[in-house]
Every structure is written in structure tokens, then in C-alpha cells.
Design a protein around this nucleic acid. Structure first.
Lengths: 358, 358
DNA sequence: CTGAAAGCGCTTACAG
DNA sequence: CTGAAAGCGCTTACAG
């Protein structure tokens, strides 16, 4: 590390007295509003037991003064912080568009709900971190990406008493509150779409079969065959790892085996598959039609290539539902440890990668 | 949104009395340690005025008990939260690997410094957000990605009295505390590397010329030419937009104009450029050698393609330096509004995209 | 419906 | 070097 230019000089500014306008407090609000702190507090928090006109007057005044309750004080007094944590696996933010989209959606939902969002990236300091997150007292609850599961301390977090909701499913435990995209039917729809485009020999590149959602998507692939009166050729089912790099090889194999359509388990691998097609001079969608999953493929590839048809994750709905479920737990209306699974149906976004003329 | 399966049942657990072990407080620590709260507080905070053996005993005890000071209480009492905010542009997390890498690095640095990190994604609610961030009282300071600049409320944030450090430079204001990668020399090094590989006609695809760093990188490109005794052919300088999609077109143009090497302003466009090469049957690096900038191109493209040579952003150092500079402002040793610019020298990571046999 | 008062868990002058 | 005490800005029983 090297400081190439340092133009700063250190100054102590004792001259200015009130550089920062003192933030107004509940006390100010109450005094200016001619009520007690208790009443002011109830008014701005929408609690019962305040005469309508008083509430109206106080909230208006609060707005006008730009009053924002101090979070720390509020938390200390109430035990609630209105801050939730988002737990993500270590490297995913960098490498995985799914995680990036999810973070983005959760951040926006949180902002809309006036919740703070603390980012917790798995992997920093194994042992200490869990304790930190838990005992800081700064968090009301956690939104945990199921992609983070596997890391030792994520399970610790799940087993703690802190309210939590999982986005995605746990690979082998069912007792959590989860929200996930609907995988099976939506995958069937995607594959059926390929059949409708005239494909007769459709292969699939799956994610890691250890994952629940991956198996569900494969189920959907099978269901679509059944419905079309076709049988699945097992040699057309190839397991990938959800990384872009596993796409080309798998696709090349499928092409060798004569497919005219591929349902790919996520967009990253689908992009890899499209590369393979380019490299092998296989035309998309004419020779091989391709459908992906996630809907993350478009942002990254506005390079004039073929737009990818994909089952689009309902990120915004996943995020806001997760936050709602978390709020229910915090409020005590939802038990943290009773299995409670919500699934949200995604849409199929149709691009040129699967649409055949005629 | 559709709840496909709801297996949960609502239970109120009044049977168990202490489901959550009551977190231990400073009071507990003091009592168990046989000192006053004041002394306990000073001991664990490393403040002067505590006998060495007492401090030792108390910290040890704190560790043993797993004591963590309640952040809210600490903040309310001291006025400091040990939480910083990270401000990012709205969509970047999804689309831009640079922003994702940066977030990742800041998150890790913050964790290491025992700082909380609140994520603020620009664009949610224009007006309210600034006030929220500022008046919540939850933040000690802000780390702002210069990529977020341009959005109206980011400037508001910069003009507020909250401590802030910019990662990257402001396009036209110089009075902030910033930390940035060194652009000029490192770009010169990258281009010189191409000359050393035998390239004689090196073009460049720049980012948007409105950005300071883009102009600096272009300067480096020129400097390298001077040093090699070559003159710059202006027709080989093409402006891109830092998005992947602008890579292929620019690269095709340069290839048409006979380049044998390209210095690309960021990895995203470099990846696009490599696509163009594949499409045009131009061999990399044999026909055209390519160097990118950022070091974000590798994670995304482990697809067996040619590894990209790139000037690698020192994300970890940028993040930890930013946090240090922020701490200095909070401590009052660094003035928030005196220009103070730190530059960190990146490394050139050499991959197959630029190395010619012989 | 409203208010006086206690208390959340810390930090920090102020005395000793 | 150490402790008693006040106070940070809220919320929430508890009385009225």
C-alpha cells in the first residue's frame, strides 16, 4: 500500500460552534406539540390510545420538524432495533449474480419498510462472528440466503434463538421458516415451452443434485416429458455446479447426443452453454433452443448476443415476503421453529434463445 | 405471490421460562469482577486509568463470559455506534462486478474492525432516504462508492456533516477524503507489458471520458507510448461505457484498424472484446493480445477460456484504508472537508490473454 | 385518552 | 487508579 499523494492538512475546527444542527428529539417534539413524551411517542408510533386529532397534529409536527427517533434510544428502550441482518456466503457477492440480485432486492425492501440492513458476509472470523451477530443486540432478526448454508456458523445461527428466515430451502432440515421460488411447476412450464417450440429431444443441465431446488427443477423437467407423452432419456441429464464454467462442457456433451433444446438449471450455466454453441457453430435457437433459470442472465449480457429465455426469480417478492415473515416472528405471531414454507411462482421470460420462427 | 404449502401452526411458548439465556451486561461483568461499572467499562475499552492487573483480569473475565457490550446502549451513551454505512448505486450490485467486489471487501474489512456495516442502495426513496440515513443516528460515517455519484442524494450526503470517505474520485469536486487505485502508472505498466510481448500497434477501449480515472488510464496509455518511443494513433482510442456490451463493437473496430494489442479500461469490456475476437476468428493472444483493468474478469469466466491479464484493483486495501480514514474523521484527527487523497498501487496480474509464446 | 416515572445498558465528567 | 452518579433518547407499565 502506498500513499502517492497526500494533500490534506489536519485542522481542528474549534471556531464553529454548532456545525451540526442538534437533531430534534422526542422531547422537543412533545414540548412543541404541547403533550407529554409518552403521548408523542404513541402518536408517532401509531399506537392506540391517542385522540385522533392529537395524533394528527403530532405526526404533522414531527414531519414538519423532520423528526426521526434515535434508533439507539428506541432500541434500548424497546428491545427492538428495526435492523435486520442479511447473511450471505463469502464470495457470492462477487461471483454469483443470484446473490447480488438477492442482496439488491432485500436492500430495497428493507429501505421501503424503514428497516436497517446489516450485511454479514460469511467467512470473516469463524468463531467470533456468530457471537458478534447474536450478542451485539443490534439485530431483530436475520435473512439468510440458503446458499450460505454449509458454512459451519450459518447452522449455528439457525440454531440460535434469533428470528430468522431462510431464502431457499435447507438441504436436509425442514423446521425453519423459508421462502423460495416455486421450482417444479415453473420448470415444467419452461420445458413445455421448448416442446411447444418444436423441440423433440430436450436435455437438461442441472445444478448440484445435493440441493433440494435442483431436484425439484429436475422433477419439473420430467413432469413436462410425461405431459407431452415423451420419455426422459437419462443420458440427456447432466449435472453441473451452477457456475458458468460448467455450462460449455455439459452443453457440448448434450449437443453430441443430439439434443434440439436444453433446459439449464441457472442462467450462469446457460450463458456457458451458449458459448459452447457459438464455439461449435450450433445456432441458437435454430439448432438448439435454450432456456435458463434465475433471470440474471440478461443484465450481464447486453452484448448483442441472443437474449436468454429464463424462469425469472421473483426477487422483489422473495425479499419482501422474507421481511414480512421476519416481522411476524419478531412480533411473536409466527413461531421461529415451526416449519413454515412459502413458495412464490416465477414468470417465464421469453427471449430469442428459445423462440423459433414459425 | 402464492403460498403453496403452509405447514406451520402458531404456538405460544409460555412453558419454557428462559428460552434465551439473558445476555450478560456490563453490570454482571463488574459485579463478578469485583469492580465498578466505570472501571469495567474502561478496562474492556482499552482506556487509560486502569491498573494493568485489573484490566487483565476484567478483559479475561469478559472473554470468558462472552460479554459483548450492547451496541445500542453504548451508542446512546457515547454518541458513537461503530456502525458505518456503505452507499452503492442502485443496480450496480447486480450488474457490476466492481461494485460487488468492493462491497465484499468493505464487508470483510468492517467485520475485522468489529464495525457494523449497513447497506444503502441508492434509489429507493429519493427524498426521505438522505434524512433517514443522516438522522437515524445509527451511523458513524459513510463509505461512498464514487460510482454512486451523480445520483442527486449522494451529493446531499457528501455535503452533509457526516464523516464520509469516497472510494474513487469525484468527477469535479476535490474537497473530499478519497481513496482510489493508482490509475496512470499502472495503466502505463499494462500497456508497456503489451509492448514487451511484441505488440507494435496497441489500441485502447476507454470508459466514459467524463470520469477522472478513465482519463488517467488513458494518460497511462499515452505515457507508455512515449516511453516506448511510439506515437499514439488517435483512431485507436475508442470510448466505451464500462459495460460488457460496449466491448465487442469497439474491439471489432480496432481489429479492423489493424491492432495487435488492446488495453481495455475494465474487465467487463475486455470480456466483451474477447467475445468479438472469438466471433471474428481472431486468436488471443496470438493475433491480438488483451489486457483489462479491475481484476474482476477471472471469477466470472472460469469457463476454460483464455485467462485475462488485468490490472487488479486492490479491493482489500481500498476498503481497509477507507475505513481507517473514516475512523480518523470520527476521532476528529482528520478534517472531513480538507482534500485528502490516498492512492493505492495495484498489481498487474498476467494471464494467457497477453502472453505470447517466445 | 394522557402523563409522571422508571428503566433499557452503557459512557463519562466529576470527586476522591 | 477507582467509584458514585448523571445522562444519552426513547418506550412502557402504571395511575389517573
Amino acid at each position: 500500500m502506498e500513499a502517492l499523494s497526500v494533500k490534506g492538512s489536519f485542522v481542528s475546527s474549534t471556531e464553529t460552534h454548532q456545525p451540526v444542527p442538534a437533531p430534534i428529539t422526542l422531547d422537543d417534539l412533545a414540548r412543541l406539540g404541547g403533550v407529554s413524551r409518552a403521548t408523542a411517542s404513541r402518536a408517532i408510533n401509531g399506537q392506540p390510545g391517542v385522540r385522533a386529532d392529537v395524533r394528527e397534529r403530532i405526526t404533522r409536527l414531527a414531519d414538519h420538524l423532520g423528526f426521526r427517533p434515535n434508533r439507539a434510544a428506541r432500541q434500548l428502550a424497546s428491545g427492538r432495533s428495526n435492523v435486520v441482518g442479511l447473511v450471505l456466503p463469502s464470495d457470492d457477492l462477487r461471483v454469483d449474480p443470484y446473490a447480488a440480485s438477492l442482496s439488491h432486492a432485500v436492500a430495497r425492501s428493507a429501505a421501503r419498510a424503514d428497516l436497517g440492513l446489516m450485511l454479514h458476509v460469511v467467512a470473516s472470523e469463524p468463531g467470533r462472528t456468530v457471537a458478534h451477530i447474536l450478542r451485539d443486540g443490534l439485530l431483530d432478526g436475520l435473512v439468510i440466503s440458503s446458499v450460505a448454508i454449509g458454512h459451519p456458523w450459518v447452522d449455528e445461527l439457525l440454531d440460535s434463538s434469533m428470528p430468522a428466515v431462510l431464502i431457499g430451502r435447507h438441504p436436509h432440515r425442514d423446521e425453519f421458516v423459508t421462502v423460495d421460488v416455486e421450482n417444479r411447476e415453473s420448470s415444467a412450464t419452461a420445458v413445455t415451452h421448448l416442446f411447444e417450440q418444436g423441440c423433440r429431444r430436450v436435455g437438461t443441465i442441472t445444478g448440484p443434485m445435493s440441493r433440494v431446488d435442483v431436484r425439484q427443477r429436475l422433477d419439473g423437467y420430467r413432469v413436462a416429458h410425461e405431459r407431452a407423452g415423451l420419455t426422459v432419456d437419462p443420458s440427456l441429464v447432466i449435472e453441473g455446479d451452477f457456475q458458468r464454467g460448467s455450462g460449455p462442457g455439459a452443453a457440448a456433451l448434450l449437443i453430441e447426443r443430439g439434443v434440439d433444446g436444453i433446459f439449464v438449471g441457472n442462467d450462469e450455466m446457460a450463458i456457458g452453454a451458449m458459448w459452447a454453441c457459438t464455439a461449435l457453430s450450433v445456432r441458437v435457437p435454430h439448432d438448439v433452443a435454450i432456456v435458463g433459470f434465475d433471470g440474471t442472465g440478461s443484465g450481464l449480457d447486453t452484448h448483442g448476443e441472443v437474449a436468454l429465455t429464463s424462469v425469472v426469480q421473483p426477487f422483489a417478492a422473495l425479499a419482501s415476503t422474507a421481511l414480512d415473515l421476519l416481522a411476524d416472528q419478531v412480533a411473536g405471531t409466527l413461531h421461529r421453529r415451526r416449519a413454515h414454507h412459502v413458495e412464490i411462482a416465477p414468470d417465464l421470460s421469453i427471449g430469442a434463445s428459445s423462440v423459433r420462427a414459425g
